[in-house]
Design a binder for these strands. Structure first.
Ligand SMILES: [Mn+2]
Ligand SMILES: [Mn+2]
Ligand SMILES: [Zn+2]
Ligand SMILES: [Zn+2]
Lengths: 139, 139
DNA sequence: CGGCAATTTAGAATCCCTCTAAGTTATTGA
DNA sequence: TCAATAACTTAGAGGGATTCTAAATTGCCG
């Protein structure tokens, strides 16, 4: 019964990052965070909201995903041109990408070691290192 | 005078991969391959062609880039949603990405070591491993 | 409660990119 | 050399994802 996860609810999550807990953001936060780590596109999430009878526009889904990302609640993963995935796992980690199905799967950060990386050019600093392992049909 | 680079010209390059050496493809091949490794978008390359007074449509630039990629003369790099880069370096290598300017810079393949990669799921095989080091303004 | 900034939204707009269908061109072999 | 033919090019329409705009709504604070 001890509460080791101090901010588990959608409402607390929003409060913590300074976003007003509106009906739309609460519903989207629940869809995103209430059942384990996920990788979703804006269209997918909007579809889930509609299916759950949550009235929210696609524009708001895009706005919310970007606000959550800016607030550190999500990270954005780019694996193919013309489609962004939003990832509820904000830990340092990498991805398998199934080219055939478009599915992303986490690879825990400590299962990939990137070594011998050159120094970043002067005046710049590393924001993030993305490793994408592209998978195809096997033998 | 010994010819150690048997296929240096645009014409030979096209013949080798079985693409007809048309005026448009020859011009684009020269723009792409005649001055070291490059990372270009379709729009950029089309702009260069127009600037060089080469009459070619944007559709043909897209077609050509994809044909060159399918033929192994180029590789496609995805670093941001909605825009593809085509890379004249087809060796195994990785990239610095300057988020501010949209510039890509090669990191030689032997300067990055990816270790402890988990087995790919059964029935799949690794097609490619992309490492993208995203850079921002530094301290 | 007001007042007001933050938020939402429909619809238009934009950006990349692909498709279509009609004209053009490179190749080939008689 | 010269059709015949397949490959290629292209303008413009079409499409998908995303962003923008401007007006309506809503949460928050005093
Ligand atoms: Mn985005
Ligand atoms: Mn492509
Ligand atoms: Zn992930
Ligand atoms: Zn490169």
């Amino acid at each position: 019964m001890s509460d080791l996860r101090p901010y588990s609810g959608a409402l607390e999550r929003l409060r913590r990052v300074g976003l007003r807990p509106t009906r739309q953001r609460l519903a989207l936060a629940r869809l995103l965070f209430d059942k384990g780590h996920r990788h979703v596109t804006a269209e997918q999430l909007h579809g889930e909201a509609v299916a759950a009878a949550v009235r929210v526009s696609l524009a708001t889904v895009y706005n919310t995903l970007h606000q959550f990302t800016a607030a550190g609640l999500l990270s954005e993963v780019v694996v193919e041109p013309g489609r962004s995935y939003f990832d509820t796992n904000t830990d340092d980690h990498h991805h398998f990408y199934f080219e055939k199905t478009g599915v992303l799967q986490d690879i825990p950060g400590d299962h990939v070691v990137v070594k011998q990386l050159p120094e970043p050019p002067p005046g710049t600093e590393i924001r993030r290192v993305d490793v994408i392992v592209r998978l195809g049909a096997g033998t």
